[in-house]
Amino acid sequence: MSDVDSRGSTVRAAGAKTLAAYLREEIASGRLSEGAKLPAERLLSEQFGASRGAVRRVLQDLKERGLITQSVGSGTFVRPGAASTFPARIRERAEPPPEDQTSPAELMEARLLIEPLMPRLITRNATGADFAKMIECIERSEAAQTIEEFEHWDGQLHRVFALATHNSFFLKILELTNRVREQGEWGRLKARSLTPERRKEYEAQHREIVEALRDRDTDAAVKALTEHLIGIQHNLFG
């Protein structure tokens, strides 16, 4: 095996270990609650840098431990009572402090205050590579076959917006945002509110935002992004 292959295998193995540890901790803490649906294997593979085979082995191990259930055509879900299978000391260690808990409603309030600040930096600092990543996220989200896949690429697009500011503060904020989006409550709200019509609306808004950013039209980008976030907030909470 070449050095390149060896390094690649090492990275994939590390990714599988990280995925296994992440899922165990999320289930033990209750952040992945009973009945919560896990992302598709392909998304887990991309997010953690693990091969599809490694992801399947991690999920099979969790299944054998009684932590998840799998149904062909439906997906992978956290099994009822899964958290209680962990010793109390592990559940307590995994449980985040109360001040670290952010509700979806609080998240949207914060996003409406913070994200509309980003276009001013994006129109000044973004590169061609940044815009190419935005287009890739849009195309992948539009091609998504499931809500989970669409939500993943939606989140990645907003992360690319943060990266395109070339300001580390915004990237840290969006990392916190995605932590909340990974919680079960956000997923349930999004699944309930994301009708095919609303998804088409979000996709059109994404393209409008990116088009304004590529034109270096700050005011238009701020307006489009703000309207997009207000629409999400209304659809989620009424």
Rank of each mutant, 00 (worst) to 15 (best):
Y202H: 08
N167K: 13
Q156D: 03
L163I: 12
E201G: 02
L112P: 08
D61Y: 02
D215P: 02
V210T: 13
A212R: 10
F237M: 05
K63E: 13
P80S: 12
R7M: 07
L43A: 13
V78K: 11
D154W: 04
A105K: 15
A28E: 08
S2F: 06
N178E: 08
T18Q: 12
P97L: 01
L163C: 04
D5Y: 12
F86G: 06
Q205E: 13
T218L: 00
I90H: 05
H234G: 01
H228L: 06
A83L: 10
L44A: 08
R124Q: 08
K37E: 09
R199G: 06
P196K: 12
F131S: 06
Q205W: 07
T69K: 04
T123M: 00
E185N: 06
K17I: 04
S84A: 15
L171G: 07
A54M: 02
P98T: 14
R12D: 04
T165Y: 09
Y202Q: 12
K200R: 15
A204S: 14
T18R: 14
P104Y: 03
L107H: 03
V72D: 01
S84L: 13
H206C: 02
D61I: 08
D100I: 04
G49D: 03
E208P: 00
Q60C: 02
A110Y: 03
R93W: 01
I135K: 09
I68D: 08
E208R: 15
A105G: 03
T85M: 05
Y202E: 09
R12A: 13
F237D: 03
S103F: 05
R192K: 14
F150W: 12
N235L: 05
L32M: 11
I209K: 10
L174P: 00
A13P: 01
I173T: 11
A191M: 01
E95V: 03
E115W: 09
L171E: 13
V11I: 13
L236Q: 03
Q183I: 02
I114A: 00
A126C: 06
Y202F: 13
H158R: 15
P87I: 12
L189W: 07
A94I: 04
I209T: 11
F170V: 13
E26V: 09
D217V: 14
V222F: 01
L225K: 13
A224F: 11
L229G: 07
E64V: 10
V72K: 14
A204G: 11
R192W: 02
E211L: 08
L38A: 06
A162N: 11
E92Y: 02
V160L: 00
S2C: 01
R181V: 01
L32H: 13
K17D: 07
I114P: 00
